[in-house]
Amino acid sequence: MGSYLPLVIVLAAGGVGTVVLVLFGGAILTWVREGQVWNSVFRHGIPRDRRTRAMAVLSNVFLHLHPVAVRKSGIRLSFTWCMGGLTFFLFLAEVVTGVLLMFYYRPVVEYAYVDIQNMRAKVISMGLMREIHRWGAHAMVISIWLHMLRVFLTGSYKPPREFNWTVGVILLVLTLLLSFTGYLLPWDQLAMWAITVGSNMARATPLLGHEGPLASFLKIDGVPLVHAGSDARFGLLAGTFVGPNALLRFYVLHCVFFPVIVSVLIAVHFWRIRKDGGISGPL
């Protein structure tokens, strides 16, 4: 019996809590919402009528990305597929899990792989965070493609939304780059060789890659300017192969550089939706 005691206590407490919530939940909520603390945070009453509902959106820094009212047909699920929103949610999930992962991960060749192994073996919740982070990244790549497909097929890139489409295309590229730079961090065979294959393209860049067209013309007194130790691939990997410098570089790009740019562009993207007339619809 003794070993069941905690379970009994938890179940009893849960039961009592549920009963209290069912019986007095509404009253408690009303009491909280009428108090000074609630009203200092939310400067409006309970959103029950038109005015307070409008205030709920207007007076909230996050919600005010939305207009107060939207076209009914524009928010149908069959019209938007919620794909842009899902991409944003997935980005948030990536930020949250990514920050947690950074506590347990060192971008050094000696530790990177072991850190991920340890994370899985010793900190169960972090193992789960790692899986969520990886699958979330794949899901984000798919959802942003489908978002683009939806925007294209509804003709929503047409005037006046041309510029926001451009911002969206850049966000799409940045999403792929975020996923690509993150791919290296586990520092396993899959990571190293995928990045080797991917970054090999850079050495074929015209003018800037040592195996690219026209690069051989760039020389001073017969000494080539663009060689394996100075070309675009070298700039990407901070070396001539995927090694310790590349790991550090990709880590910084993945955790700081790209997320900051993406965050700024997401803000621009959302703001422009409103400025360009909200969710698109027949003119």
């Binding site: 076209r71 009914k72 619809g281």
Partner: peptide
Amino acid sequence: IEAGSDDKVLVW
């Protein structure tokens, strides 16, 4: 399907 551009609903 998307017609009725004047029909608006509140965000909240």
